[in-house]
């Protein structure tokens, strides 16, 4: 708690996009996430790091309410997006997900054309009034995802035919086409080779200008490279949260130190 208060003071100049208050998650009897408090700022890349099974991916999916369908799953506490509780009864998860896009670990383009992949979100949310607007959205999204030059000549080709890194950038384009406010990325580079990873990381940094980005990653180097703030999860606890530089150079909690120096996890 002490840490939190200190940070609040340091950061209350920026806007808070997502605020989690005392979030607990249970899968049946097991307590997956324990009393997590976190503030995610707008136009910032926030990295969640920690060993496997520490609850960081689970937490990410809760922000997008992707775990709603699992019956035995329960959540307590509040997750606020722009000050509104996303677990309020009145909130439709469909509408929420339009504002918090999710990019998955493994690239999962639909077996459709590249164009249809990107236009899928805007179409279901009714963001384009006509074909020309749609074309514009598709082009803009592909450009922002830094893949436009590679695919502009073959928008009708199936998205599944692209290389792994291209597929993942296509999925990012697909997610940002709906103009979300938050972009949630669940280990977006774990299935990619180093070159593709570099491209995606570069992209994430550019996306910070328009979105608030949350990225879950296994790789501490990646967190250090792309994020401004880092949260370290361990066994369902949020151990430490602060500016990335501080976490990596001067961690307060001994567990964080052991993890980043490679002694646990």
């Amino acid at each position: 708690m002490n840490t939190m208060n200190m940070m609040d003071k340091a950061l209350n100049t920026t806007t808070t996009k997502i605020a989690a208050r005392n979030v607990n998650v249970y899968y049946g009897d097991s307590h997956a996430i324990k009393d997590v408090n976190v503030e995610i700022d707008a136009n910032t890349v926030t990295a969640f790091i920690g060993p496997s099974g520490c609850g960081k991916s689970t937490f990410l999916r809760w922000i997008n309410r992707m775990n709603d369908t699992i019956d035995i799953c329960r959540v307590t506490g509040d997750i606020l997006l722009d000050g509104e509780d996303i677990y309020d009864k009145r909130v439709d998860p469909v509408q929420l997900r339009a504002q918090a896009g999710l990019v998955f670990q493994k690239p999962n383009p639909f077996p459709k054309s590249i164009y249809d992949n990107v236009s899928y979100g805007p179409r279901i949310h009714g963001l384009a009034r006509n074909k020309a607007e749609m074309n514009e959205i598709v082009e803009k999204s592909l450009r922002r995802a830094a893949i436009w030059d590679e695919v502009k000549d073959r928008l009708d080709a199936p998205g599944t035919g692209l290389s792994g890194g291209q597929q993942q950038r296509l999925c990012i384009a697909r997610a940002i086409a709906t103009e979300p406010e938050v972009l949630l990325m669940d280990e977006p580079c774990s299935a990619l080779d180093p070159i593709a990873t570099a491209q995606v990381e570069e992209l994430i940094d550019e996306l910070r200008a328009s979105f608030s980005v949350v990225i879950v990653t296994h790789s501490m180097q990646q967190a250090a490279r792309v994020s401004q703030k880092t949260a370290f999860f361990h066994l369902g606890n949020l151990v430490e949260f602060g500016p990335t530089g501080q976490i990596f150079t001067n961690p307060e909690d001994p567990r964080t130190e052991s993890y980043i120096t490679g002694r646990i996890g």
Binding site: N64, M66, L96, R97, L102, F104, F110
Partner: peptide, 27 residues
């Protein structure tokens, strides 16, 4: 049809029926 496709569609804010009709069934 892989679950990842369904997740992908739901994650973008599609409803279940939209996912079924536009992603799962065509696939």
């Amino acid at each position: 049809v892989p679950q990842s496709l369904r997740d992908g569609s739901l994650g973008l804010g599609a409803t279940k029926s939209e996912t079924v009709r536009q992603v799962v069934l065509p696939a």
